[in-house]
Nucleic acid binder design. Sequence first.
DNA 1: ACTATTTTGTTATAACATTACATATATTCC
DNA 2: GGAATATATGTAATGTTATAACAAAATAGT
Lengths: 161, 161
Amino acid sequence: MQDPNPCRSAFNQHDHQNCIDSALETAKKLCRQRSSRLTPVRQRVLELIWQSHHPLGAYQILSQLGEEGFNSAPPTVYRALDFLLEHGLVHRIASLNAFIGCVSPEQCHHGYFLICRNCGSAQEIKAQNLSGFLHQNAEAAGFKIESETVELSGLCPLCQS
Amino acid sequence: MQDPNPCRSAFNQHDHQNCIDSALETAKKLCRQRSSRLTPVRQRVLELIWQSHHPLGAYQILSQLGEEGFNSAPPTVYRALDFLLEHGLVHRIASLNAFIGCVSPEQCHHGYFLICRNCGSAQEIKAQNLSGFLHQNAEAAGFKIESETVELSGLCPLCQS
DNA sequence: ACTATTTTGTTATAACATTACATATATTCC
DNA sequence: GGAATATATGTAATGTTATAACAAAATAGT
């Protein structure tokens, strides 16, 4: 299956506008399919998140919304984020209390992340067999995994030099 | 190498007092070796954390300290936690904003966790090859991992039935 | 147009964490 | 032992992240 979103390269130069456009198109398509409403605030929050390679905090998003004339009370942004999370359009990064766009909202329900501690950029990775490996280990303890949080912090290629 | 702490079974019955005692002895030994001071507050925080199989939030710990006559302003507990974290005696679980004892403070610098969404208990697991696997995947992206957050949420054996 | 559902506005507050500066307690070295 | 230094704690205020509760508005289905 082909990935709909080219953005697997937060650490490399690329035309990110493509990623944003692609993410929005996918979001619209999914919401149409599910007859969910991608309202103006929700769409704008998704755009703001995609425009950055740094995971964005809720209050960063909120202040942007405020500048653009949207309502800027916390529930506004948290509701939009809840919606986007439920639809798998964004991920929450627990170790940062921040949000990042999901590169394959049609399939994945978890995300594995590389997070640069120096420049703050983050990239979702595929790690094909990881889920199976984790489930295997959990099974040994009789545990049934429902959601996976894998956040790897360190130095991105650029920040190593 | 033998594990100094028997507590690898938050989801099973066992004499947890042994785990607590063992953790405290190890902590004292490590601090002696490093000429760090395991002061009364620090030790009490470590005990409180070990007494629970549920990861404890900072403010839960704080209110316990308060009841016992310790100072109960936030910095008190956060300082103690910082100390314990630095020495690898406890882990922070990012997805819960909570803290849990480390079962092998002499070796491990990361922790992999199974967290029951129903009863709230959490268990650290070994997952031998996981770190290597993660590093391999990161390397493919030119990324250098420094710390690993792996938190697996789901149902523990007891809560599945 | 009427009704039910969903979404948004608004106010307040809960939960988690840090800053800054003062005070006290240990440790070191003479 | 006593002064100087380093480490740890006390205290007040504030910063940051997230939710609760209820009212109003917009939308969808009939």
